[in-house]
Design a binder for these strands. Structure first.
Lengths: 350, 350
DNA sequence: TTGAAAGCGTTACCAT
DNA sequence: ATGGTAACGCTTTCAA
């Protein structure tokens, strides 16, 4: 910029004015400046600019794994809102490791992102963010609540959704229903297990710990668990799977071990091709795009950019005035019956 | 930092030394500084630091749509390499719109990212990046080559992969094979169509333009196209679909229109659950993780960070010494027979 | 309309 | 071992 000023024979500020389209520059002068810019291949350095102006026009997004279809849709929704508001997005996957989540979050803060959207890793605590929030960084927790920190949160109605899904199986005659969840350290996994138990209790079905399998979704471990379940004196006639990855692995394990003998199944999370499988898979669907959009819009409002949120399209759940207290938004889930959840128990299993 | 220096009664540079763990500070002094940092809640501003040091330790990734399972896996792979090298990643989806691709790319450059990984949008040209490259920004094009710009590129062997897939159908007796592709403006779509034609030509099968459908993958349009194909005097007995979205839509349309009468099908791109559908779907699989990893590693080498690339794990295709000229890496595809591609033509269709 | 100087938060260089 | 000063590339403030 200095070079441009010299080449055009004008002051630094004049170049700045031209570059930023500010008024107060004569056309001939502006023309000279523009041609110097062209000549020298000058490109404005936004980092420097933002350092001076104190804003970075960027946000950070920390999720579990961008390759997971659920989070990739969340990411896209966040990007969309950000793009509409001229915010750039740093992204990173924590891989469910607290230290990685923290590392990413702190790295983004060190770059002085204006806001952070975080999907907490299993077992992570978030005291580390308190100084950042105190320093003015806005943070919205997505999919799972913060631990040890009061902060805005956007979640799905996990417990209620799970309850509905399991109740659906019960309504179709099942009484031996297994729950295949993720590690209970993960908030969503725990909540969905609670919903599972709620449904059993409401139907007066005793709770059998042998039917609850809470473990990280790896295909071999899941296949082993399914074999153990099948070997029970009273094996389950239906499965409730607690997330998309678990559902996928369970379906694959079942297809390998017992082809042609479909167990009833309701999965938490919708997934591509659920409708094309045989039988089509009944799911409790979340709305990942809405989760991402809502979190991003909430963040914008916290950043005082409420104007960036189109009121016509804004999520009604955050349409109300925002106070100083953290907000907790819980988005509804939707039961999508497709076939696998409507399979009756085999005769003779009462 | 100024405040910290004053509070600790030391100079600015001493604080800087402590913060960065540089040697040359007495332990008692360092202790005073650290306690002042604690007290004041000081957090280093990396943006300012990087402005001064001239590096930004960040790269930009522009893809078509992070919600697409193909690109989300690419993204994760890029993130992984970046994280190992302490690089932060800006991401953005172009939504196949050249102006968005350009906007994102330029925004990243204005923040002075050190490198750029770009999946070109359909119809985009890349002359706009020439000044950036001249200014020292490294760029690697991913999945599709740059247009109007000589630059490093990492692609799949699209034409050869498509040829193999269609040849597979021919080997199973098909002679009327439709090609459902994306808009021909997209390099991969065009290349795969060429591969389709190559296979037909090699088998001495005449080329029928009516069997080539090149259009943006929307479900209704695809269903209509399939109906038109079915109404031909000699309808196709097999389908070659040119990407994961097209495959998904085609399968859905077929399931709705002609349930129980599966057409033979080979799809380009693998996708989750391809193995669990009935019939399981034969695909020409790309390796999106490897595409992303290879592009990121190539970028690192261009940034002179070859040490960040683990030589034991580095992709052999970029293991060779890098010269000044742009490199073009073409990764192999893999035919995965699963059932849908091995269905013979119905009797009487010769 | 224009520009000089100060400052954003940091590091580099050179003294002390 | 420690610190002052300049500089990174820009914007802001204020004066001309």
């Amino acid at each position: 910029m200095k070079d441009v000023a010299r080449a055009a024979g004008v002051g630094l500020k004049t170049v700045s004015r031209v570059v930023n389209g500010e008024p107060g520059v004569n056309e001939p002068t502006a023309r000279r400046v523009r041609s110097a810019i062209e000549q020298l291949g000058y490109r404005r350095n936004d980092s420097a600019r933002l350092l001076r102006s104190g804003q970075t026009a960027s946000i950070g997004l920390v999720i579990e794994d961008v390759a997971d279809p659920f989070y990739s849709v969340v990411t896209r929704a966040v990007e969309e809102v950000a793009a509409r508001n001229d915010l750039l997005v740093f992204t990173g996957s924590s891989d469910e490791r607290p230290e990685r989540e923290r590392r990413l979050g702190m790295a983004f803060c060190a770059r002085r992102v204006e806001g952070l959207i975080i999907v907490p890793a299993a077992g992570a605590r978030h005291e580390y963010l308190a100084p950042e929030l105190a320093a003015g960084v806005a943070a919205v927790f997505l999919d799972r609540p913060a631990v040890g920190l009061a902060a805005d949160t956007v979640l799905s109605a996990n417990r209620e959704g799970a309850r509905t899904g399991v109740a659906h199986l019960i309504a179709h005659g099942h009484r031996r229903i297994a729950c295949l969840g993720d590690v209970a350290e993960i908030h969503t996994a725990e909540q969905r297990r609670q919903g599972y138990r709620d449904a059993l209790a409401a139907a007066g079905i005793g709770h059998d710990p042998a039917l609850e399998v809470m473990q990280a979704p790896r295909i071999e471990a899941l296949a082993a668990a399914l074999r153990r379940l099948a070997a029970l004196p009273e094996p389950p006639t239906a499965l409730f799977t607690g997330n998309n990855v678990t559902t996928a692995h369970a379906l694959r394990a079942l297809a390998a071990d017992a082809p042609g003998h479909p167990l009833a199944l309701v999965g938490f999370d919708d997934f591509p091709f659920a409708d094309l499988l045989t039988p089509a898979v009944t799911v409790v669907a979340q709305d990942p795009a809405r989760l991402g959009r809502t979190a991003a819009e909430l963040l914008l409002r916290r950043l005082g950019r409420a104007d960036g949120v189109d009121p016509a399209q804004a999520d009604p759940l955050i349409a109300a005035e925002l106070g100083a207290d953290p907000v907790r938004v819980e988005l509804p889930t939707r039961l999508v019956p497709r076939g696998s959840g409507e399979i009756p128990p085999p005769p003779g299993t009462r």
